[in-house]
Nucleic acid binder design. Structure first.
Length: 463
RNA sequence: GCUCCGAUGGUGUAGUCCGGCCAAUCAUAUUGCCCUCUCACGGCAAUGACCAGGGUUCGAAUCCCUGUCGGAGCACCA
Protein backbone atom coordinates (compact mmCIF):
# COMPACT_ATOMS: atom_id res chain seq x y z
CA UNK A 1 0.00 0.00 0.00
CA UNK A 2 1.08 3.55 -0.32
CA UNK A 3 0.63 6.94 1.21
CA UNK A 4 1.15 9.56 -1.47
CA UNK A 5 1.23 13.00 0.09
CA UNK A 6 1.73 16.28 -1.62
CA UNK A 7 4.60 17.88 0.34
CA UNK A 8 3.07 21.30 0.81
CA UNK A 9 3.31 21.52 4.59
CA UNK A 10 3.16 19.58 7.83
CA UNK A 11 0.16 17.34 8.23
CA UNK A 12 -3.16 18.30 9.66
CA UNK A 13 -5.15 15.80 11.67
CA UNK A 14 -7.05 14.54 8.64
CA UNK A 15 -3.84 13.43 6.99
CA UNK A 16 -3.33 10.91 9.78
CA UNK A 17 -6.11 8.76 8.40
CA UNK A 18 -4.12 7.25 5.53
CA UNK A 19 -1.07 6.15 7.53
CA UNK A 20 -3.31 5.11 10.42
CA UNK A 21 -5.27 2.74 8.26
CA UNK A 22 -2.58 1.39 5.97
CA UNK A 23 -0.06 1.23 8.80
CA UNK A 24 -2.49 -0.71 10.95
CA UNK A 25 -3.28 -3.05 8.07
CA UNK A 26 0.38 -3.58 7.34
CA UNK A 27 1.09 -4.50 10.93
CA UNK A 28 -1.95 -6.73 11.11
CA UNK A 29 -1.48 -8.61 7.86
CA UNK A 30 2.28 -8.53 7.49
CA UNK A 31 2.00 -6.13 4.58
CA UNK A 32 4.12 -3.36 3.18
CA UNK A 33 3.67 0.34 2.73
CA UNK A 34 5.65 3.20 1.35
CA UNK A 35 5.47 6.95 1.34
CA UNK A 36 5.65 8.44 -2.10
CA UNK A 37 5.77 12.19 -2.40
CA UNK A 38 3.72 13.07 -5.45
CA UNK A 39 5.50 16.34 -6.07
CA UNK A 40 5.03 16.76 -9.80
CA UNK A 41 3.70 20.29 -9.90
CA UNK A 42 6.44 22.84 -9.17
CA UNK A 43 4.02 25.69 -9.76
CA UNK A 44 0.41 25.48 -8.55
CA UNK A 45 1.11 22.86 -5.91
CA UNK A 46 4.62 24.01 -5.29
CA UNK A 47 6.34 21.66 -2.85
CA UNK A 48 7.71 23.06 0.39
CA UNK A 49 11.22 21.75 0.90
CA UNK A 50 10.76 21.36 4.64
CA UNK A 51 7.52 19.47 4.26
CA UNK A 52 9.22 16.25 3.16
CA UNK A 53 10.87 15.85 6.55
CA UNK A 54 7.95 17.35 8.44
CA UNK A 55 5.68 14.68 7.04
CA UNK A 56 8.04 11.85 7.87
CA UNK A 57 8.28 13.26 11.38
CA UNK A 58 4.49 13.36 11.69
CA UNK A 59 4.41 9.77 10.52
CA UNK A 60 6.91 8.82 13.18
CA UNK A 61 4.76 10.55 15.80
CA UNK A 62 1.85 8.39 14.72
CA UNK A 63 4.07 5.39 15.31
CA UNK A 64 4.82 4.21 11.80
CA UNK A 65 7.94 3.80 9.78
CA UNK A 66 7.41 3.38 6.06
CA UNK A 67 9.04 0.41 4.38
CA UNK A 68 10.25 2.68 1.61
CA UNK A 69 10.17 6.34 0.65
CA UNK A 70 10.08 7.76 -2.86
CA UNK A 71 9.92 11.16 -4.42
CA UNK A 72 8.17 11.37 -7.78
CA UNK A 73 10.47 14.23 -8.73
CA UNK A 74 13.37 11.74 -8.64
CA UNK A 75 11.67 9.52 -11.16
CA UNK A 76 11.04 11.70 -14.19
CA UNK A 77 13.18 9.55 -16.49
CA UNK A 78 11.05 6.56 -15.61
CA UNK A 79 7.89 8.42 -16.53
CA UNK A 80 9.44 9.60 -19.78
CA UNK A 81 10.40 6.04 -20.68
CA UNK A 82 6.87 4.84 -20.12
CA UNK A 83 5.45 7.72 -22.07
CA UNK A 84 7.70 6.82 -25.02
CA UNK A 85 6.51 3.26 -24.80
CA UNK A 86 2.91 4.38 -24.64
CA UNK A 87 3.42 6.50 -27.76
CA UNK A 88 4.91 3.51 -29.55
CA UNK A 89 1.80 1.58 -28.63
CA UNK A 90 -0.30 4.31 -30.18
CA UNK A 91 -1.74 5.26 -26.81
CA UNK A 92 -0.76 8.91 -26.63
CA UNK A 93 -0.38 11.98 -28.78
CA UNK A 94 1.09 15.42 -28.51
CA UNK A 95 -1.49 18.17 -28.67
CA UNK A 96 -1.13 21.92 -29.02
CA UNK A 97 -4.79 22.82 -28.56
CA UNK A 98 -5.44 25.44 -25.92
CA UNK A 99 -7.18 24.19 -22.84
CA UNK A 100 -10.44 25.92 -23.74
CA UNK A 101 -10.45 24.70 -27.33
CA UNK A 102 -9.85 21.14 -26.34
CA UNK A 103 -12.42 21.30 -23.58
CA UNK A 104 -15.05 22.38 -26.11
CA UNK A 105 -14.18 19.60 -28.52
CA UNK A 106 -14.12 17.12 -25.70
CA UNK A 107 -17.50 18.13 -24.37
CA UNK A 108 -19.04 17.58 -27.74
CA UNK A 109 -17.18 14.29 -28.12
CA UNK A 110 -15.04 15.37 -31.04
CA UNK A 111 -11.39 14.50 -31.55
CA UNK A 112 -8.87 17.24 -32.15
CA UNK A 113 -6.76 17.19 -35.33
CA UNK A 114 -3.61 16.21 -33.42
CA UNK A 115 -5.10 12.88 -32.46
CA UNK A 116 -4.20 11.22 -35.73
CA UNK A 117 -0.57 12.29 -35.93
CA UNK A 118 1.85 9.52 -36.81
CA UNK A 119 3.99 7.96 -34.15
CA UNK A 120 7.27 9.48 -35.36
CA UNK A 121 5.93 13.02 -35.15
CA UNK A 122 4.47 12.42 -31.72
CA UNK A 123 7.73 10.88 -30.51
CA UNK A 124 9.76 13.78 -31.88
CA UNK A 125 7.46 16.37 -30.34
CA UNK A 126 7.51 14.57 -27.03
CA UNK A 127 11.32 14.56 -27.03
CA UNK A 128 11.14 18.28 -27.72
CA UNK A 129 8.87 18.62 -24.69
CA UNK A 130 11.40 16.79 -22.55
CA UNK A 131 14.16 19.03 -23.91
CA UNK A 132 12.15 22.03 -22.81
CA UNK A 133 11.64 23.43 -26.29
CA UNK A 134 8.10 24.53 -25.58
CA UNK A 135 6.82 27.06 -23.12
CA UNK A 136 4.16 26.40 -20.57
CA UNK A 137 0.81 25.82 -22.27
CA UNK A 138 2.15 25.26 -25.75
CA UNK A 139 2.14 21.49 -25.91
CA UNK A 140 0.85 18.55 -23.89
CA UNK A 141 0.92 14.80 -24.23
CA UNK A 142 -2.54 13.26 -24.09
CA UNK A 143 -3.51 9.69 -23.44
CA UNK A 144 -5.75 8.38 -26.19
CA UNK A 145 -8.78 7.00 -24.37
CA UNK A 146 -12.25 7.18 -25.86
CA UNK A 147 -13.21 10.62 -27.09
CA UNK A 148 -16.87 9.63 -27.00
CA UNK A 149 -16.77 8.08 -23.57
CA UNK A 150 -20.02 8.86 -21.80
CA UNK A 151 -18.12 10.29 -18.87
CA UNK A 152 -16.44 13.45 -20.19
CA UNK A 153 -13.92 13.31 -17.37
CA UNK A 154 -12.28 10.29 -18.97
CA UNK A 155 -11.86 11.60 -22.49
CA UNK A 156 -8.25 11.95 -23.69
CA UNK A 157 -6.74 13.34 -20.53
CA UNK A 158 -3.42 15.11 -20.20
CA UNK A 159 -0.43 13.00 -19.19
CA UNK A 160 2.40 15.55 -19.47
CA UNK A 161 2.53 19.31 -19.66
CA UNK A 162 5.17 22.01 -19.75
CA UNK A 163 5.94 24.04 -16.61
CA UNK A 164 8.32 26.99 -16.77
CA UNK A 165 8.84 27.30 -13.03
CA UNK A 166 11.78 25.17 -11.85
CA UNK A 167 11.12 22.54 -9.20
CA UNK A 168 12.28 23.66 -5.74
CA UNK A 169 14.33 20.52 -5.28
CA UNK A 170 17.71 21.10 -6.83
CA UNK A 171 17.89 17.54 -8.12
CA UNK A 172 14.76 18.14 -10.20
CA UNK A 173 15.16 21.79 -11.05
CA UNK A 174 16.18 21.25 -14.68
CA UNK A 175 13.01 19.45 -15.72
CA UNK A 176 10.33 21.37 -17.59
CA UNK A 177 8.12 18.55 -18.82
CA UNK A 178 6.10 17.22 -15.90
CA UNK A 179 3.66 14.30 -15.68
CA UNK A 180 0.16 14.81 -14.32
CA UNK A 181 -0.90 12.92 -11.21
CA UNK A 182 -2.91 10.31 -13.09
CA UNK A 183 0.00 9.30 -15.28
CA UNK A 184 2.70 9.49 -12.64
CA UNK A 185 0.73 7.82 -9.93
CA UNK A 186 -0.67 5.17 -12.25
CA UNK A 187 2.76 4.18 -13.52
CA UNK A 188 4.32 4.27 -10.08
CA UNK A 189 1.66 2.17 -8.45
CA UNK A 190 2.36 -0.61 -10.91
CA UNK A 191 6.14 -0.27 -10.83
CA UNK A 192 6.31 -0.13 -7.05
CA UNK A 193 4.06 -3.15 -6.81
CA UNK A 194 1.13 -1.57 -5.02
CA UNK A 195 -1.69 -4.08 -4.59
CA UNK A 196 -4.21 -1.95 -2.70
CA UNK A 197 -4.94 1.72 -3.04
CA UNK A 198 -7.01 3.88 -0.76
CA UNK A 199 -7.78 7.38 -1.90
CA UNK A 200 -10.27 10.17 -1.56
CA UNK A 201 -13.54 10.45 -3.45
CA UNK A 202 -12.07 13.43 -5.27
CA UNK A 203 -10.01 10.87 -7.15
CA UNK A 204 -12.98 8.67 -7.97
CA UNK A 205 -12.27 8.88 -11.68
CA UNK A 206 -8.55 8.26 -11.40
CA UNK A 207 -8.74 4.52 -11.57
CA UNK A 208 -10.98 4.71 -14.62
CA UNK A 209 -8.62 7.12 -16.30
CA UNK A 210 -5.53 5.13 -15.44
CA UNK A 211 -7.19 1.95 -16.57
CA UNK A 212 -6.65 3.10 -20.17
CA UNK A 213 -2.89 3.25 -19.58
CA UNK A 214 -2.95 -0.07 -17.78
CA UNK A 215 -4.76 -1.60 -20.73
CA UNK A 216 -2.13 -0.34 -23.19
CA UNK A 217 0.61 -1.86 -21.05
CA UNK A 218 -1.45 -4.92 -20.21
CA UNK A 219 -1.07 -4.36 -16.51
CA UNK A 220 -3.50 -5.35 -13.80
CA UNK A 221 -4.99 -2.50 -11.82
CA UNK A 222 -4.67 -2.67 -8.00
CA UNK A 223 -7.69 -2.96 -5.72
CA UNK A 224 -8.97 0.49 -4.96
CA UNK A 225 -11.18 1.99 -2.26
CA UNK A 226 -12.42 5.56 -2.14
CA UNK A 227 -13.23 7.25 1.09
CA UNK A 228 -14.90 10.54 1.93
CA UNK A 229 -13.53 13.58 3.65
CA UNK A 230 -12.95 13.82 7.37
CA UNK A 231 -14.09 16.83 9.31
CA UNK A 232 -13.12 17.61 12.88
CA UNK A 233 -15.42 19.13 15.42
CA UNK A 234 -14.17 21.48 18.14
CA UNK A 235 -11.88 23.61 15.99
CA UNK A 236 -12.37 27.17 14.85
CA UNK A 237 -9.62 26.85 12.28
CA UNK A 238 -10.43 25.07 9.06
CA UNK A 239 -8.52 21.86 8.51
CA UNK A 240 -6.63 22.81 5.40
CA UNK A 241 -2.90 23.09 4.95
CA UNK A 242 -3.16 26.31 2.97
CA UNK A 243 -5.52 27.97 5.45
CA UNK A 244 -3.32 27.09 8.40
CA UNK A 245 -0.27 28.25 6.52
CA UNK A 246 -1.90 31.62 5.79
CA UNK A 247 -2.93 32.10 9.42
CA UNK A 248 0.64 31.45 10.48
CA UNK A 249 1.94 33.96 7.96
CA UNK A 250 -0.56 36.54 9.20
CA UNK A 251 0.58 35.93 12.75
CA UNK A 252 -2.82 34.66 13.87
CA UNK A 253 -1.28 31.34 14.82
CA UNK A 254 2.14 30.91 16.42
CA UNK A 255 3.14 28.08 14.18
CA UNK A 256 2.19 24.61 13.07
CA UNK A 257 2.16 23.48 16.70
CA UNK A 258 -0.11 26.24 17.97
CA UNK A 259 -2.74 24.53 20.16
CA UNK A 260 -5.46 26.26 18.15
CA UNK A 261 -4.27 24.63 14.92
CA UNK A 262 -5.76 21.28 13.90
CA UNK A 263 -2.36 19.83 13.11
CA UNK A 264 -0.51 16.75 14.26
CA UNK A 265 2.32 18.90 15.57
CA UNK A 266 -0.19 20.68 17.76
CA UNK A 267 -1.71 17.51 19.18
CA UNK A 268 1.75 16.19 19.81
CA UNK A 269 2.70 19.25 21.78
CA UNK A 270 -0.46 18.93 23.83
CA UNK A 271 0.69 15.50 24.89
CA UNK A 272 -1.77 13.48 22.89
CA UNK A 273 -0.26 10.21 21.79
CA UNK A 274 -0.13 9.26 18.15
CA UNK A 275 -1.72 5.97 19.06
CA UNK A 276 -4.85 7.75 20.30
CA UNK A 277 -5.23 9.40 16.90
CA UNK A 278 -4.51 6.22 14.99
CA UNK A 279 -7.15 4.29 16.91
CA UNK A 280 -9.78 6.95 16.35
CA UNK A 281 -8.95 7.11 12.65
CA UNK A 282 -9.01 3.37 12.21
CA UNK A 283 -12.44 3.16 13.80
CA UNK A 284 -13.74 5.62 11.22
CA UNK A 285 -13.62 2.86 8.67
CA UNK A 286 -13.39 3.57 4.96
CA UNK A 287 -16.88 4.59 3.90
CA UNK A 288 -17.30 6.79 0.84
CA UNK A 289 -19.41 9.30 2.71
CA UNK A 290 -17.91 12.24 4.51
CA UNK A 291 -17.37 11.61 8.19
CA UNK A 292 -17.12 13.81 11.26
CA UNK A 293 -14.41 12.82 13.67
CA UNK A 294 -15.20 13.91 17.21
CA UNK A 295 -12.11 15.15 19.02
CA UNK A 296 -13.68 13.63 22.12
CA UNK A 297 -13.01 10.18 20.74
CA UNK A 298 -9.31 10.99 20.38
CA UNK A 299 -9.41 12.37 23.90
CA UNK A 300 -11.13 9.27 25.24
CA UNK A 301 -8.46 7.09 23.66
CA UNK A 302 -5.70 9.24 25.06
CA UNK A 303 -7.19 9.23 28.56
CA UNK A 304 -7.20 5.47 28.40
CA UNK A 305 -3.51 5.51 27.57
CA UNK A 306 -2.30 8.05 30.09
CA UNK A 307 -4.70 8.23 33.03
CA UNK A 308 -3.07 5.50 35.04
CA UNK A 309 0.45 6.85 34.78
CA UNK A 310 -0.32 10.55 35.06
CA UNK A 311 0.11 12.16 38.48
CA UNK A 312 -2.31 14.69 39.90
CA UNK A 313 -1.59 18.30 40.75
CA UNK A 314 -3.46 21.48 41.48
CA UNK A 315 -3.81 24.39 39.11
CA UNK A 316 -5.96 27.38 39.95
CA UNK A 317 -6.98 29.45 36.97
CA UNK A 318 -7.34 33.21 37.44
CA UNK A 319 -7.03 32.76 41.20
CA UNK A 320 -8.82 34.86 43.76
CA UNK A 321 -6.96 35.24 47.05
CA UNK A 322 -8.60 34.48 50.39
CA UNK A 323 -6.92 34.58 53.82
CA UNK A 324 -6.92 31.53 56.09
CA UNK A 325 -7.67 31.63 59.76
CA UNK A 326 -8.20 29.31 62.69
CA UNK A 327 -4.88 27.38 62.69
CA UNK A 328 -5.28 24.90 59.85
CA UNK A 329 -2.55 22.27 59.23
CA UNK A 330 0.51 23.85 57.71
CA UNK A 331 0.85 21.35 54.92
CA UNK A 332 -1.49 19.32 52.71
CA UNK A 333 -0.52 15.90 51.41
CA UNK A 334 -2.91 14.70 48.73
CA UNK A 335 -1.84 11.58 46.84
CA UNK A 336 -0.03 11.80 43.51
CA UNK A 337 -2.57 9.38 42.09
CA UNK A 338 -5.79 8.30 43.78
CA UNK A 339 -5.47 4.74 42.50
CA UNK A 340 -1.78 4.37 43.39
CA UNK A 341 -1.08 5.31 46.96
CA UNK A 342 2.36 3.71 46.66
CA UNK A 343 3.51 6.60 44.49
CA UNK A 344 3.39 8.84 47.52
CA UNK A 345 1.95 12.20 48.26
CA UNK A 346 2.44 15.79 47.32
CA UNK A 347 3.65 18.42 49.78
CA UNK A 348 1.69 21.60 49.51
CA UNK A 349 2.40 24.20 52.21
CA UNK A 350 -0.65 25.99 53.51
CA UNK A 351 0.30 29.50 54.42
CA UNK A 352 -1.72 32.54 55.43
CA UNK A 353 -3.76 32.67 52.28
CA UNK A 354 -4.86 30.54 49.32
CA UNK A 355 -5.93 31.10 45.73
CA UNK A 356 -9.23 29.65 44.57
CA UNK A 357 -10.94 29.63 41.21
CA UNK A 358 -13.64 32.22 40.92
CA UNK A 359 -16.32 29.64 40.31
CA UNK A 360 -15.41 27.86 43.53
CA UNK A 361 -15.68 30.86 45.86
CA UNK A 362 -17.95 30.01 48.79
CA UNK A 363 -20.92 32.12 49.77
CA UNK A 364 -21.20 33.81 53.16
CA UNK A 365 -20.97 31.33 56.04
CA UNK A 366 -20.72 28.49 53.58
CA UNK A 367 -18.34 25.62 54.25
CA UNK A 368 -15.91 24.25 51.68
CA UNK A 369 -13.36 21.49 51.83
CA UNK A 370 -9.92 22.41 50.54
CA UNK A 371 -8.78 19.15 49.11
CA UNK A 372 -6.06 17.56 51.20
CA UNK A 373 -6.20 20.28 53.82
CA UNK A 374 -9.52 20.37 55.58
CA UNK A 375 -12.83 22.06 56.08
CA UNK A 376 -13.22 25.84 56.19
CA UNK A 377 -16.07 28.20 56.74
CA UNK A 378 -16.17 31.53 54.94
CA UNK A 379 -16.67 34.06 57.69
CA UNK A 380 -15.84 37.77 57.79
CA UNK A 381 -13.88 37.54 54.49
CA UNK A 382 -11.69 34.81 55.91
CA UNK A 383 -11.64 31.05 55.50
CA UNK A 384 -11.85 29.83 59.10
CA UNK A 385 -10.61 26.32 59.73
CA UNK A 386 -13.41 24.32 61.31
CA UNK A 387 -11.59 21.07 61.96
CA UNK A 388 -14.56 19.07 60.70
CA UNK A 389 -14.10 15.42 59.94
CA UNK A 390 -14.00 14.14 56.38
CA UNK A 391 -17.43 12.70 57.02
CA UNK A 392 -18.94 16.07 56.17
CA UNK A 393 -17.72 15.49 52.64
CA UNK A 394 -18.92 11.91 52.52
CA UNK A 395 -22.33 13.05 53.59
CA UNK A 396 -22.36 15.46 50.72
CA UNK A 397 -22.71 18.60 52.85
CA UNK A 398 -19.51 20.27 51.71
CA UNK A 399 -17.99 20.79 48.28
CA UNK A 400 -14.41 19.71 47.73
CA UNK A 401 -12.32 22.16 45.75
CA UNK A 402 -8.72 22.54 44.71
CA UNK A 403 -6.49 25.40 45.76
CA UNK A 404 -2.89 26.62 45.85
CA UNK A 405 -1.00 28.58 48.50
CA UNK A 406 -1.03 32.28 47.69
CA UNK A 407 2.64 32.94 48.21
CA UNK A 408 4.31 29.70 47.21
CA UNK A 409 2.81 28.78 43.88
CA UNK A 410 4.14 28.46 40.38
CA UNK A 411 2.88 30.95 37.79
CA UNK A 412 1.56 28.99 34.84
CA UNK A 413 0.52 29.87 31.36
CA UNK A 414 -1.68 27.15 29.98
CA UNK A 415 -2.06 27.15 26.23
CA UNK A 416 -5.42 25.81 25.05
CA UNK A 417 -7.45 25.53 21.88
CA UNK A 418 -9.35 28.60 22.98
CA UNK A 419 -6.35 30.72 23.79
CA UNK A 420 -4.00 31.07 26.73
CA UNK A 421 -5.12 30.83 30.33
CA UNK A 422 -3.01 32.05 33.22
CA UNK A 423 -3.03 30.55 36.65
CA UNK A 424 -0.99 29.22 39.53
CA UNK A 425 0.03 25.66 40.22
CA UNK A 426 1.15 23.97 43.40
CA UNK A 427 4.92 24.24 44.12
CA UNK A 428 5.80 20.69 43.00
CA UNK A 429 4.97 21.56 39.40
CA UNK A 430 8.21 23.54 39.18
CA UNK A 431 10.15 20.28 39.51
CA UNK A 432 8.39 18.41 36.72
CA UNK A 433 10.39 17.70 33.59
CA UNK A 434 9.33 19.18 30.29
CA UNK A 435 7.28 16.66 28.31
CA UNK A 436 5.80 15.13 31.46
CA UNK A 437 2.04 14.82 31.59
CA UNK A 438 0.03 16.01 34.56
CA UNK A 439 -3.59 16.02 35.45
CA UNK A 440 -4.69 19.24 37.02
CA UNK A 441 -7.50 18.08 39.23
CA UNK A 442 -10.91 19.31 38.17
CA UNK A 443 -9.29 21.03 35.16
CA UNK A 444 -7.84 18.39 32.89
CA UNK A 445 -4.74 16.81 31.45
CA UNK A 446 -1.83 18.90 30.26
CA UNK A 447 1.72 18.51 29.08
CA UNK A 448 4.56 20.40 30.75
CA UNK A 449 6.21 22.28 27.90
CA UNK A 450 8.95 24.33 29.56
CA UNK A 451 9.92 26.35 32.61
CA UNK A 452 10.60 29.93 31.61
CA UNK A 453 12.13 32.40 34.00
CA UNK A 454 8.86 33.95 35.06
CA UNK A 455 6.35 31.21 34.32
CA UNK A 456 5.84 27.58 33.50
CA UNK A 457 4.23 26.93 30.15
CA UNK A 458 1.92 23.95 29.78
CA UNK A 459 -0.23 22.77 26.89
CA UNK A 460 -3.74 21.68 27.71
CA UNK A 461 -4.65 18.29 26.27
CA UNK A 462 -8.23 17.50 27.20
CA UNK A 463 -10.54 16.96 30.18
C1' G B 1 -25.82 20.56 -18.05
C1' C B 2 -23.15 15.55 -18.42
C1' U B 3 -21.05 11.47 -15.41
C1' C B 4 -20.17 8.88 -10.87
C1' C B 5 -21.04 7.74 -5.63
C1' G B 6 -23.58 7.62 -1.08
C1' A B 7 -27.68 7.86 3.04
C1' U B 8 -28.25 3.17 10.28
C1' G B 9 -29.05 7.27 17.18
C1' G B 10 -25.45 13.79 18.51
C1' U B 11 -20.82 11.35 16.32
C1' G B 12 -18.48 6.92 14.37
C1' U B 13 -19.51 1.91 13.38
C1' A B 14 -21.62 -3.56 12.86
C1' G B 15 -25.39 -5.82 10.02
C1' U B 16 -26.66 -4.91 3.48
C1' C B 17 -23.06 -9.04 -1.01
C1' C B 18 -26.11 -14.60 0.36
C1' G B 19 -33.91 -11.29 3.06
C1' G B 20 -35.82 -14.43 8.62
C1' C B 21 -31.18 -15.61 14.40
C1' C B 22 -32.09 -7.32 13.96
C1' A B 23 -38.50 -5.14 18.59
C1' A B 24 -30.78 -3.55 15.11
C1' U B 25 -24.12 -4.31 17.51
C1' C B 26 -20.19 -1.87 19.78
C1' A B 27 -17.68 2.66 20.97
C1' U B 28 -18.03 7.69 22.05
C1' A B 29 -21.17 11.68 23.66
C1' U B 30 -25.20 13.22 27.01
C1' U B 31 -28.06 12.33 31.64
C1' G B 32 -28.85 9.79 36.32
C1' C B 33 -27.09 6.51 40.27
C1' C B 34 -22.79 3.97 42.81
C1' C B 35 -17.46 4.50 44.09
C1' U B 36 -14.23 8.62 45.43
C1' C B 37 -11.23 14.39 49.75
C1' U B 38 -16.90 16.00 44.19
C1' C B 39 -11.24 15.58 38.75
C1' A B 40 -9.95 11.21 36.15
C1' C B 41 -10.39 5.93 36.38
C1' G B 42 -13.96 2.02 37.51
C1' G B 43 -19.26 -0.08 38.07
C1' C B 44 -24.62 0.25 36.90
C1' A B 45 -28.66 2.37 34.22
C1' A B 46 -31.29 5.60 30.84
C1' U B 47 -31.89 8.52 26.34
C1' G B 48 -31.30 7.85 21.20
C1' A B 49 -31.11 5.39 14.46
C1' C B 50 -32.46 1.82 9.56
C1' C B 51 -33.85 9.33 4.41
C1' A B 52 -39.24 9.16 2.18
C1' G B 53 -42.85 6.62 -0.69
C1' G B 54 -44.14 2.59 -3.52
C1' G B 55 -43.13 -2.60 -5.12
C1' U B 56 -41.47 -7.99 -4.63
C1' U B 57 -42.14 -11.50 -0.46
C1' C B 58 -45.21 -15.47 4.41
C1' G B 59 -41.22 -12.03 5.97
C1' A B 60 -37.20 -6.12 3.95
C1' A B 61 -32.11 -2.08 7.35
C1' U B 62 -30.98 -5.88 3.62
C1' C B 63 -33.71 -6.94 -3.13
C1' C B 64 -36.27 -3.51 -7.16
C1' C B 65 -38.31 1.40 -8.67
C1' U B 66 -39.22 6.58 -7.88
C1' G B 67 -38.26 10.75 -5.16
C1' U B 68 -35.50 13.71 -1.54
C1' C B 69 -31.04 15.11 0.50
C1' G B 70 -25.77 15.03 0.47
C1' G B 71 -20.86 14.35 -1.77
C1' A B 72 -17.45 14.05 -6.02
C1' G B 73 -15.51 14.57 -11.11
C1' C B 74 -16.04 17.00 -16.04
C1' A B 75 -8.17 21.27 -14.92
C1' C B 76 -1.99 21.93 -18.88
C1' C B 77 -3.96 20.87 -9.36
C1' A B 78 -2.79 17.01 -6.12
Amino acid sequence: MRCAPNPNGPWHVGHARMPAVIGTYRDRYDGWFCVRFDDTDPETKRPDLEAYDDILEDLDYLGFEPDATYKASDRLETYYDHARELIELGGAYTCSCSGEDFSELKNSGEACPHREKDTETVLAEFEAMIDGEYDSGEMVLRVKTDIEHKNPALRDWVAFRMIDTPHPREEASEYRCWPMLDFQSGVDDHLIGITHIIRGIDLQDSAKRQQFVYDYFDWEYPEVIHWGHVQLDDYDVKMSTSTISELIDEGKLDGWDDPRAPTLKSLRRRGIRGEAIVDAMTKLGTSTTDVDLAMSSIYANNRDLIDDETDRHFLVRDGVQLPLGGSPPDEANPPLHPNHEDRGVREIPASDAVLLEEGDLPGREERIWLKGLGCFQYTRDTLQYTGDDIDVVREGDVDVIHWVPADESVPVRMRTMDGDVSGHAEPGVADLEPDEMVQFERVGFARIDRHDEDETVVYYAHP
